Amino acid sequence: MANPIGVGIIGAGNISDQYLTNLTSFPDVRVLAIGDLLEDRARAQAEKYAVPKAGGVDVVLDDPDIQIVVNLTIPASHVPVSEAIIAAGKHVWSEKPIGTGRDEARGMLEKADAAGVRVGIAPDTVLGPGVQTAKRAIARGDIGRPLFATTTFQWQGPEIFHPDPAFLYARGGGPLLDMGPYYVSTLVHVFGPVAAVAALGLKGTESRTVQVGPLAGTEFPVEVPSTISVLMQFEQGGQAQSLYSTDSPLRRQGIVEISGTEGTLVIPDPNTFGGEITITRALTEMVIPPAPIVQRVDDVAQEGVLTGRGLGLLDMARSIRDGRPHIATGEFGYHVLDTLLSIEEAVESRGFVTVDSTIAEAGSLGADFDPYAATL
């Protein structure tokens, strides 16, 4: 492969802007076509980002110069669209989650194996300088042995900005399936595969109301828990507690804290690619109020080139050329889905649920990985 890898996109909705902004700036890939059931929407995005072709889904699937197709459809459509991409003989990069059920997701991965094509699964935020720098700090022993994590995602919900948010509260959505992949993926990168989970869940309301756009004022049902409290046990012994909620007027998002035997590492919001990284050290002497409690906080210099969505696809494209595994694999995405579905089952059973799948240690992206270098 001496030329940039051809890329197509299926799904021209809200998130496509983030992908197109980055993919059209990476020299190693070239976006050749955008397809959508709403063809005018695909054409508008193609014109905006100077993409040569646009129209229906077949515009992407039938293009012989496209090797990787980005699946940006809604979660319920992820597996059937990915299978159509595989049937067309192309590699898949799919937004998270990989699917909404284990059997369909596993079946899709088996079809990809049989066809000899690759599957990559978002989020690729975990490949950004934020999480990758934190992983290197942990590997150096900067916080000693990692013991447990605390993560928090809480706010009032996406209906205040999304013009059609009903799918985010349908099966395959909710704060767990929508935002959980970012946090669980980060924790699996740090602690390894999940062994078991326990959880409690509730619905703040049985319906929500769209607040912006043409559908403003329209009510839609809440089909899944909108608040879930989670405990996780990892195969290698670490633990985590997490909150996912769209029932909170108080906005507290992006909190990821990894506590080890020698310090607590604060990682940037896992829905971003970078940010401030700090390590808080233990007190060295007793502090008695009203004296202020002052702890030593060390800054960790972020390493790597900051970019955005599409980074994982670029790693997959270069991996195809080099004949090596890419990092955000379908198997990793399946383990994350299996964990999230196990959490849903734990909500129903009110007990611990074993996560049946496992994976090898997640790969890492080197600090010298430059998305803006031409290497193909």
Rank of each mutant, 00 (worst) to 15 (best):
I5V: 11
A12D: 00
G13I: 00
L23T: 03
S25Q: 12
L38D: 11
D40M: 13
P52C: 13
P64K: 03
P80H: 14
A84Q: 06
A88K: 03
G89Q: 12
G89C: 10
W93C: 04
S94Q: 01
G99N: 07
G101D: 08
T125Q: 03
L127V: 04
G130N: 06
A134Q: 12
A139M: 02
A139K: 06
P146G: 10
D164G: 01
P165E: 10
G172F: 07
G174C: 12
L176V: 03
D178C: 07
P193L: 14
G204Q: 12
S229C: 04
F234G: 02
T246G: 03
I258K: 05
S259A: 15
T264M: 13
T264Y: 03
V266L: 08
P268K: 13
P270K: 09
T272H: 06
E276I: 08
R281V: 03
A282C: 01
T284F: 04
V287T: 14
P289W: 06
P290I: 00
T307S: 07
L314N: 14
A317E: 08
D322L: 13
P325R: 08
A328R: 05
E331H: 08
L341C: 06
I343A: 02
E344D: 07
E344R: 09
A346I: 11
V347T: 15
V355W: 05
A360D: 15
D370K: 14
T375Y: 09
